[in-house]
Design a protein around this nucleic acid. Sequence first.
DNA 1: CCCGCCAAAATGTCCGTACATTTGGACTAT
DNA 2: ATAGTCCAAATGTACGGACATTTTGGCGGG
Lengths: 258, 258
Amino acid sequence: MTSAVHLELSDIRVAVLDPDSPVPLYHQIEEDLRRLIKEGAAPSDSLLPPEIVLSQAYNVGRHTMRMALARLAADGLITRRAGRGTIVKRQPDRTRFLLDRSFTRQMADMGRTARARVLEQRTGTIDENSPDVFAVHLGSPCLVLNRLRFGDDEPVGIQYSTILTEHCPDLEKYDFNQSGLYDVLAREYRLTVKEIQHTITATVADAEQAELLQIAVGDPLVVVRTTTFLDNDQFFEYTTSLYRADKYEYSTRHTYAA
Amino acid sequence: MTSAVHLELSDIRVAVLDPDSPVPLYHQIEEDLRRLIKEGAAPSDSLLPPEIVLSQAYNVGRHTMRMALARLAADGLITRRAGRGTIVKRQPDRTRFLLDRSFTRQMADMGRTARARVLEQRTGTIDENSPDVFAVHLGSPCLVLNRLRFGDDEPVGIQYSTILTEHCPDLEKYDFNQSGLYDVLAREYRLTVKEIQHTITATVADAEQAELLQIAVGDPLVVVRTTTFLDNDQFFEYTTSLYRADKYEYSTRHTYAA
DNA sequence: CCCGCCAAAATGTCCGTACATTTGGACTAT
DNA sequence: ATAGTCCAAATGTACGGACATTTTGGCGGG
């Protein structure tokens, strides 16, 4: 069974490439290919045209084309094999991953009501004490927002958030006791989160955390470190969440990597 | 506060580079730099020599050097900024797990050696004390396999597995101190796991677990409950894993569900 | 003393070339 | 038909150069 080349080169919008843009060419190409895959012009299991042909279609060097393809491969959208070609991978069925959403939405999906009590809310700037993910944003204005989260009036977790406010000035004026963070961002700033990255581990509660969560010191907590990205893969927000292990579990499902 | 260049170029073992090896040069260099970072020759927060200097030290082109550095950056070992230089990141003490692969494969991907010590291995049948997922398999033969897992001879976690043996008779005769479970299934029975479902939460170590994992009672553990399915979505295996929270973290990335 | 400008250093982007390796298919000989 | 050989295609690896952008720090002028 050989895969035919399905992608029509005419679908490639060379016009969108702007050599004078601050966005690198390989990134513009990467985005265009993501669009083609997403919109079905390059369906799953189809073979992409070879590098050299693509590079001519986009009117760039092979090296630039390879950088774009390498990023797509690293992200799992395509598979490349010498001698074979570049194949669009079957996209995982994301609809099963129902927990990849805001706390408010998660609780609503479970038929519970999400609430928040703001523990701290202040503006600041990114400094060298910030987590590593902020390294390239030193000096940028940000909002620090620490909240105790409830599900049906029962304390479930504590969230320590740092949000870059370059794209959402005056974010600090909102009352996050009343509104969810993502709700405000969408309604007031038209900002939509595109991707969420989680890192999960465990810890035990200290005195302060135990007091807030109404559990005992030393009880287990699930640690979820969350990094969110906007449409253009721009880093946006970092949150460390501590959830009561007796009230929280995280579920996901993967295709096995042979 | 400027970081001095700490890495001694004399530490670079150009001798180890073999242009005739099937292993690419950039990969050999990557491994050498990993070693230097791991062994402390390039400590955290130190500045690495510039690309061009490194490429001369290794006697390769700048492009090859950049490929090695790009892989280290993608892996989070170093941070690079134009004008500033290349900085060795503070290394998290945790091992970052992706759950779409076996423990053995995960360790191999990270350049570590997976080992196992079988704690218990016996045949049995599914009874009413089995987890809920086995409800429709009451009376079926199974293998109970409890293992202590090591990465580079360091205890990382405990895995309590129950495997349905309808499709793999005599599975109990293999020595799982020597071979990974999925390796045996693939090699001896041609069985391939297709999908893995995880549920993650946290707990604290009891006396027995602390002893096995060489930690203190009450230290945090990551609980991963795993259900695996074969090609035809047929339920196959259930494992509860307890991982040391100081050695384990789980990472994933999703598209946001608006 | 402070501020702004400028130069040096370092990484980032982009181009070109050459050859190696892998793969799959066509072709040939049996 | 079948097995083995060979070739073309595609990606992988590695070299080179050129210029852009970012950062840091030094140097002067005010």
